[in-house]
Write a protein that binds this DNA or RNA. Structure first.
Lengths: 242, 242
DNA sequence: TCAAAAGTGTTGTCACTACACCCATGG
DNA sequence: CCATGGGTGTAGTGACAACACTTTTGA
């Protein structure tokens, strides 16, 4: 907020919004792993390198809306989870200009991600084996990955990778893919149910040659211990992807 | 990062850095409570209202350095803890212009805060009973308070309010003041020592009419479980305040 | 009837709480 | 010698890990 006023220089600091997007996709062995979409830079600096989707902040657009828009432009998807990650502003992070980037991170549904747009300038890569990216974007994605993994441990965000309803095995498979470690099905079940945020739909998922598991739905209205003040409680799901 | 390029409008978005500063000061009953310094706005908009210390981001200054500088300008102090809080950028948060504020939060030593500069345009207020502030600064301080309180529960930051060495009773008094709830001295002692981040100095604090307690020093080099990737491990203490 | 996964029971460990109790010092 | 905090011992509780076990389905 304006406390001391300085004239804006000829080369002002510019403000960008970027988004780290995560989805689960099966690797060659069929097990789901984290993937993230990148865009190819079509102008200097760093022309031709792969980078995070993003762009300059339009003066009349909210930060989160800008993040959701670039996400939609690059993937054709609407996020099921979207949260501010961090603001990166090192003086020398972009050659030639001072760029401050407000970075968001997002989760999108895995089945939607499968039919996401891809083209010569959009490429999905495994989040754990990144190529060399433009600017400081490797570091940013690594930080977002760390945040996703720590948050999955204490929070209920794994459901954002799934559809409206899901079985506990599906949910566990998601968490295992994010944490890269197997979990005890019995204990996972109890921990999830004890959280009070899952509601039975009354349905079961038949068809497999085993006992049909119950289908659950995530209940965002259930009492949270202490939600973060910056978190929205409304679902992002209902937004039209238009 | 430049992905799509838009011409900078006549009224560009401006980037500010603000800092929420916390120190412990005794209230009238002598018990320490959280205080935060505010500055009076000397120009429109919101002229005359109290606001967070901050200012426009100089093009050649790091975000964190800008936060430390405004902190030094308003309090004359160097922070013992400084961390990015959040970036607030709602389109309508500042009347007349689009202002995006990267907000930091800081802790300063309580005894230094006692002799901090204050004047007609700088005022310290109890952090829990704020007056009506300019812009969205009430909300920002409340979020910083929430972050301080949650972080004190799982992290070792309380020592940042104290000097180089301290007793466990002093440290506990700090945590009690932040959390606004008494703690069991025996359990607090064990939890702190089990963290592995306190080192005995070998000294004791004599003079009181009780058994002299040991003095401890915070050890930032001790193995942390998993430090946040954005956190610096070096101490902020050593920096000259000049 | 069998493979496979759903779902339940049981035990051990560990962190944390509550609180009784002993220790060392200055007055 | 006693008030005052420093510091230790110990039992209870609740969350979680490990793993044996029963249940229910499709083939």
């Amino acid at each position: 907020m304006p406390q001391q006023t300085k004239p804006i220089g000829e080369v002002p600091t510019r403000l960008a919004v970027s988004t780290v997007i995560f989805a689960l996709r099966p690797d060659r062995s069929g097990r789901p792993v984290l993937w993230t979409p990148l865009v190819r830079r079509t102008r200097e600096p760093q022309l031709g390198l792969w980078a995070l989707p993003g762009g300059w902040l339009p003066p009349a657009e909210e930060l989160e809306a800008a993040a959701a828009r670039t996400l939609r432009l690059t993937t054709g998807l609407a996020p099921t989870y979207l949260e501010q990650l961090y603001t990166f502003g090192e003086v020398d992070r972009s050659p030639g200009a001072r760029v401050v980037s407000v970075v968001y991170w997002a989760l999108v549904q895995s089945d939607e991600a499968a039919r996401a747009t891809a083209g010569p300038n959009v490429r999905w890569v495994p989040a754990d084996t990144l190529p060399g990216l433009a600017f400081d974007h490797n570091r940013i994605i690594e930080y977002a990955l760390w945040r996703l993994r720590t948050k999955v441990e204490y929070s209920q965000i794994a459901h954002a990778f799934l559809g409206e309803t899901f079985t506990l095995a599906e949910l566990r498979e998601v968490v295992e893919a994010v944490l890269q470690r197997p979990l005890d099905p019995a204990n996972f079940r109890r921990t999830m149910l004890a959280s009070g945020r899952l509601r039975e739909t009354g349905e079961r998922l038949a068809g497999a040659r085993n006992r049909p598991p119950k289908l659950y739905r995530y209940d965002s209205t259930a009492l949270a211990a202490t939600p973060e003040p910056t978190a929205r409680t409304e679902s992002l799901r209902e937004r039209p992807a238009s």
